[in-house]
Design a protein around this nucleic acid. Structure first.
Lengths: 244, 244
DNA sequence: GTTCGATTCAAACGATCGTTTTATCGAGGC
DNA sequence: GCCTCGATAAAACGATCGTTTGAATCGAAC
């Protein structure tokens, strides 16, 4: 029955998010889902395929919404570049509102997605990234048009940081409550969306740091690391060890 | 012998970072470390205590460096508030340069730390957060002095995002290489530090978004969610489901 | 009513896990 | 020399894991 498959998927989604993939046994999933243990290997092939199916169920629609939003913003902008804030919104809003859909499994999938960005298993991460890769092209092009004066290398670093902030907000954890001593409400999805967009836009538009050596990165880095910040030498080692 | 304990700690650090805590067996650790299996439960009490000892070994010095940096910056600033960039630097530079210490286990511990911020296990996360809590007070006060015009609630949200960007940069993952198509060099620690600081400072100083309802957060949120962005209604559900 | 494919079920399989037990080793104190 | 005790070694323990097996069950087609 389709009911069995969905119950397994929903329960697995929740338990994977709560306890982690490795720490969640198929017996725990089937017990809480009220189905037989062998049903997992019957409907899906293995535990890993279950996780794969779990993502495939929702990542498709999520990506469609992202692209659709970006399309609509580009259409209304015409020949002019889309405003940076719109691009960021198209990227983060669909995924951040995943948890707000009462018909779906709630916040479980969002937490799982946030944690997926730093997943230990390389093979599972590869699946996740392959779904992401097609969007990277679209958004990368949009970002470059919105920030034409920013060197691509700087832009990519900042997009990397932005994704980190987004992933962390998805994964949640009680950290916000600890930092804010209860002042901030982690369940305020609307506030989260607007604040994260504002944070990311500002970070993406940050002034170029004078401390960054422009010749870096293209592997044309000299053999001796340049001490960037002398007063912080206590934190680092004095010997040159930047090439790793 | 002390050598046995250190070899276990070093190997565990590396394998936990590579494969994750649950996916790493004590047999794999002891095999690669060249020690007997029972040595783990002899020198440490359990696998979880091993992880605890692993963090205790380095978190202490890390926190000391953070506080010492903040102290020095505050001393040189005198009665004036410390520049925001300095506070951010004191917070992120010691941890980001953990991987650059050739005497230590390399990048393993940094990856582990980055992943710890969204650790599934609540009990292990509690240990990690308790080490962090003492610093939160110091840095929260410094941030508030550096950004006196920013409402505390907004500040805490932005610090939360900043920690997310930092944790993601620590956990690494090949995402930066994928985003940048090889243009950015993930091993460029100096560039990472300066760019992340610039990104975080800009995000922390972002202009206040007009979209954010000021009365939010204190749980005085109205029962009906306000549709913030009508054109994005396709992404969200039209019914009110913001209270979760 | 029978057949057949799809689904569910109870039970077991082999493997691996964290932990414990027991024995062995080796350097210092008396 | 014998004894002690911290450290190491080999082996086993009980539990749990993902997966498989083979029979039971069900509904629809003929």
């Amino acid at each position: 029955m389709q009911d069995t498959k969905d119950r397994i998927l929903d329960t697995a989604e929740r338990l994977f998010a709560e306890r982690g993939y490795d720490a969640t046994s198929l017996r725990a999933i089937t017990r809480e889902a009220g189905v037989n243990l062998a049903a997992v290997n019957y409907h899906f092939n293995s535990k890993e395929s279950l996780l794969r199916a779990l993502f495939g169920r929702k990542l498709g629609k999520l990506n469609e919404r992202r692209i659709a939003l970006l399309d609509s913003y580009e259409a209304e902008a015409g020949v002019k570049p889309v405003a940076l804030e719109k691009i960021v919104r198209a990227f983060v809003e669909p995924v951040l509102r995943l948890g707000g859909d009462p018909a779906s499994g709630g916040t479980g999938f969002a937490m799982l997605m946030g944690r997926m960005y730093s997943w230990p298993s390389v093979q599972l991460q590869r699946v996740f990234v392959s779904e992401l890769r097609e969007q990277i092209g679209r958004f990368r092009a949009a970002f470059r048009r919105a920030l034409p004066h920013l060197p691509p290398r700087e832009l990519y670093w900042r997009v990397f940081f932005s994704i980190g902030a987004m992933a962390h907000a998805l994964a949640g954890s009680g950290l916000l409550a600890i930092i804010s001593d209860g002042v901030c409400d982690p369940a305020d999805t609307d506030g989260l969306v607007e604040r994260l967009i504002g944070f990311m836009v500002a970070g993406l538009k940050a002034p170029l740091s004078a401390r960054i050596n422009g010749r870096h990165g293209k592997r044309a880095v000299p053999a001796i690391a340049h001490p960037v910040h002398p007063s912080a030498s206590r934190a680092g080692n004095s010997t040159a060890a930047s090439r790793r």
